[in-house]
């Protein structure tokens, strides 16, 4: 028998391979095109003379007021950048301990049955549409928190942050749990064999060993929080105030785009400013993702040695 290839033997395989290649390329191309589109719509701020009479790059970072539709429109991004930052940090402050605690509990301490309950239950939380979470935060949680803590303003950054926390808990939990589960059993055995208690084993050995994955999970959650729109649109009070007080109403970059893009005059300075916000968001998430990778690699080589 000859070793020569039969003519159509691998036809099926090469068809499938080609298909996968096309799909993958398509996904990348779409993301790239979106980026190009946002660039194109925000660049007039730099280059188009007509637009520049209304708005320039400098104006976006001058002052502290975002008042795009007043007689004397002002386009400072600071209040909404600050708003995004505030709400994101509050969300992480609330979500990170809960998610990592739950992940550690379900992989290290919970019995098999309980574990089989916790994981789907938390992941079910991910299935709640963000508009429902926002609605809950707006109608129920805000009044509840206001009554308990005696807040003056019902809808504020803390309220939105907590609601946003609920939205990102499942993502952080899920990734952190995977990272913790991936810690080899031999580490746990070694620690227990040395007379560490289960709690010490979990906190001093398993969690540090999973740190690269867990911190990547946190940053992933941060990316989600920065980009989440509906919850903050509904629960934060939507006033673009330049205030560091978390109990004031606030507005995020995402909510600004969502709230204003529908009614903006096409091609106006305001229109291009909104796209510029989109560009900033794009860059912020990009930087967060990059940091997450760098952190993961850095921690990996610190913990596991640079040999591998």
């Amino acid at each position: 028998m000859s070793l020569k290839k039969r003519r159509f033997k691998y036809l099926g395989e090469s068809l499938i391979e080609g298909n996968i290649k096309i799909t993958a390329t398509f996904a990348i191309v779409v993301v790239f095109l979106i980026f190009i589109f946002i660039m194109r719509e925000s660049l007039p701020i730099f280059f188009n003379g007509e637009v520049r009479q209304e708005i320039t790059f400098g104006k976006l970072f001058k002052g502290t007021a975002w008042q795009p539709v007043s007689d004397n429109p002002r386009f400072s991004l600071w209040p909404i950048i600050l708003g995004s930052l505030k709400v994101t940090l509050i969300a992480l402050f609330f979500a990170v301990p809960v998610a990592i605690g739950a992940a550690l509990y379900s992989s290290e301490f919970a019995g098999r049955r309980l574990k089989e309950f916790i994981k789907p239950a938390v992941e079910l939380l991910a299935g709640i549409p963000s508009v429902v979470l926002g609605f809950f935060a707006l109608m129920v949680m805000a009044s509840f928190l206001k009554n308990i803590f005696g807040w003056e303003i019902r809808l504020n950054a803390v309220n939105a942050g907590i609601a946003l926390g609920f939205a990102v808990i499942p993502s952080i939990y899920s990734l952190a749990e995977d990272a913790i589960n991936a810690v080899p059993r031999s580490f746990r055995e070694a620690a227990l064999g040395l007379g560490a208690s289960p709690w010490q084993t979990a906190v001093k050995v398993v969690l540090p060993a999973a740190l690269p994955g867990v911190s990547a999970a946190v940053l992933f959650g941060m990316g989600r929080a920065v980009g989440e729109t509906m919850v903050v649109l509904m629960a934060a009070g939507n006033a673009p105030l330049f205030s560091f007080n978390p109990l004031n109403s606030t507005r995020t970059m995402t909510a600004t785009i969502a709230a204003e893009l529908g009614e903006v005059v096409f091609g106006s300075g305001h229109y291009h400013a909104l796209f510029f916000i989109g560009l900033v968001l794009f860059l912020v998430t990009f930087v967060i993702n990059m940091t997450s990778w760098a952190l993961f690699d850095g921690l990996m080589s610190k913990l596991y040695g640079s040999k591998k």
């Binding site: 080899p184 031999s186 580490f187 055995e189 070694a190 620690a191 064999g193 040395l194 007379g195 560490a196 208690s197 010490q200 001093k204 050995v205 540090p208 060993a209 913990l303 596991y304």
Partner: peptide, 25 residues
């Protein structure tokens, strides 16, 4: 105490590995 089939040092420094059991006391 126990030593296992495959070497299983913790992903920590050599010092921290050896000090681990004592620290947990």
């Amino acid at each position: 105490g126990m030593v296992f089939q495959r070497p299983n040092p913790f992903p920590k420094s050599i010092f921290e590995n050896v000090a681990f059991g004592v620290r947990m006391g």
